[in-house]
């Protein structure tokens, strides 16, 4: 339909080229709509050059870059905390491989993340032992309290929920780990308390800054 319409516009010639261009733009947008993968969007965050230098030095010091992509990505994630598009492209150019190959590896492994995480990471163990003892209800409660889904970050940038597979404290199931601290035998009622301890910490910190 649209094709016909454009032809019609051109034939009538009383429309300016700008309008015709707009139609084309619309068409093009329909056809090549950017995929909804956030790695395609610009990150909006500029990293200092030192961080890239650190990564470059690490790559240069490797004995061989053959088969070392995962190792490099681990290091990159350690430096940048996540792997945005720019970092992936940097690695690709440094190694002389297509960016798609880097992205293919990044998206394959669940350990790598392309989104910046919140200040505190709430990892709810979804291993079988914890699931059987009610971890599913605990994670639902966390989602409800924070108003986000797993792998998302709250608007204030404080919390990220992650469902992880077995952190190995099956004796304490169900287990929740906030940053490095492990909370064992968590009940649904405990969830508010856990969140509030971190919220309070933040408020106190903010107070200190204000004073």
């Amino acid at each position: 339909m649209q094709k016909v319409r454009i032809k019609f516009h051109i034939e009538r010639k009383n429309y300016s080229w700008q309008i015709i261009y707009k139609y084309f733009e619309k068409l093009v947008n329909v056809m090549t709509k950017p995929q909804d993968i956030d790695v395609m969007k610009p990150t909006g965050q500029e990293f200092p050059k030192e961080k890239y230098d650190e990564l470059e030095a690490f790559i240069n010091n490797l004995e061989t870059t053959k088969g070392a992509l995962i190792e490099i990505l681990h290091k990159a994630q350690e430096i940048f905390r996540y792997l945005p598009r720019d970092v992936q492209l940097f690695i690709a150019r440094k190694l002389g491989i297509p960016g798609a190959e880097v992205f293919g590896v990044v998206s394959f492994y669940s350990y790598f993340t392309t989104k910046p995480g919140g200040k505190h990471t709430v990892s709810v163990c979804m291993g079988t032992a914890c699931f059987v003892r009610g971890a599913d209800k605990v994670i639902e409660k966390f989602k409800e309290v924070l108003g986000i889904e797993s792998n998302e970050t709250t608007e204030d940038g404080l919390f990220t929920i992650k469902d992880v597979r077995c952190i190995g404290a099956c004796g304490l199931a169900p287990v929740v780990m906030v940053d490095g601290k492990v909370y064992g035998r968590v009940k649904v009622e405990d969830v508010d308390g856990i969140i509030n301890t971190y919220r309070k910490q933040e408020e106190q910190n903010a107070d200190k800054v204000l004073r």
Partner: peptide, 8 residues
């Protein structure tokens, strides 16, 4: 050592 990155 080679590190995995979370894939069953």
């Amino acid at each position: 050592l080679k590190y995995g990155a979370g894939a069953f």
